[in-house]
Design a protein around this nucleic acid. Structure first.
Lengths: 143, 143
DNA sequence: TTTATATCCCACTAATTTGGTAGGAATAGT
DNA sequence: ACTATTCCTACCAAATTAGTGGGATATAAA
């Protein structure tokens, strides 16, 4: 399951992407429109900024805007940022590799391949899920 | 990520399946061979029994044996039992359906379809990952 | 220069989940 | 009776998740 943090982050990003012409957008506005607790959202957007997914402008009329196009920002990156590895096992991740403690022999582990196949599929689809793609899907659905 | 409970469960099931001719197998033996804390394993096998994945024999020379063939028992069932829903969002699960609190409108949600596609793929592969399949893969890998 | 509106930053907390442990009752084979 | 087993209930510690609070800092406009 995606954490609330990740879901909030995606909702906020989609909102910002939808209002690209009005950027930057303040935390308080997103909080109101998307029903996300203000201070929590603040910390989320700050993390997104540190990860260079968003950029910020301080002071009056400041706020956040996308650091990149809606086609470049995708769910895999956001998910990894907040929820860590996407794979089912720590031993089949790029970014967060670790041995399985429980594992007697990694090389002959029967579920490792399976976990790897699932990860590949999942990452592929999450990378394809860019903000642009999500917005396109939403438009199609609201027709 | 799979929880330790799920991984322990799968390891234990694979072990039992591998020793089908010597069944029933005691908790203490599996605990020793698979390096799983005894009391924790006890509770895991008990849950597997309540879910009718294992069956038990009490008393001396008792233990656990598979309730079904190694081809019938698969990772999807075990994962769901211990970790709950497999999907990324609560609104795209069969067994554990719940609205996303964060969601403004489920029908036009752009990431719901994506989550559904990923779930379908993942469940398909986890269902294919039967004990028989896992053991076959292990044999292949140890050659 | 003051004021209003922003982000930034650091510390704290409450609730939930995860990964166990402890102790003893019930059961069955020898 | 003895011994090895599952069964059952309660408890517990650590980690993670989902936040909150308070104030410093920056910037545009009046």
């Amino acid at each position: 399951m995606l954490s609330k943090k990740t879901k909030y982050a995606i909702n906020a990003l989609v909102y910002i992407a939808k209002h690209e012409n009005e950027q930057p957008i303040s935390v308080s506005r997103i909080s109101l429109e998307q029903n996300i607790p203000l201070k929590f959202l603040e910390s989320i957007l700050s993390e997104l900024k540190n990860a260079r997914i968003l950029k910020s402008t301080r002071g009056k009329y400041g706020g956040y805007s996308l650091n990149g196009t809606p086609k470049e920002i995708h769910m895999a990156k956001v998910t990894r940022l907040f929820d860590g590895a996407i794979a089912l096992l720590p031993c089949v991740t790029y970014d967060y590799y670790e041995r399985c403690e429980e594992c007697v022999d990694e090389v002959t582990c029967g579920i490792r391949q399976i976990a790897m196949e699932i990860r590949n599929e999942t990452v592929k689809r999450l990378k394809a899920a860019t903000l642009a793609d999500i917005i396109k899907r939403e438009k199609k659905l609201s027709k």
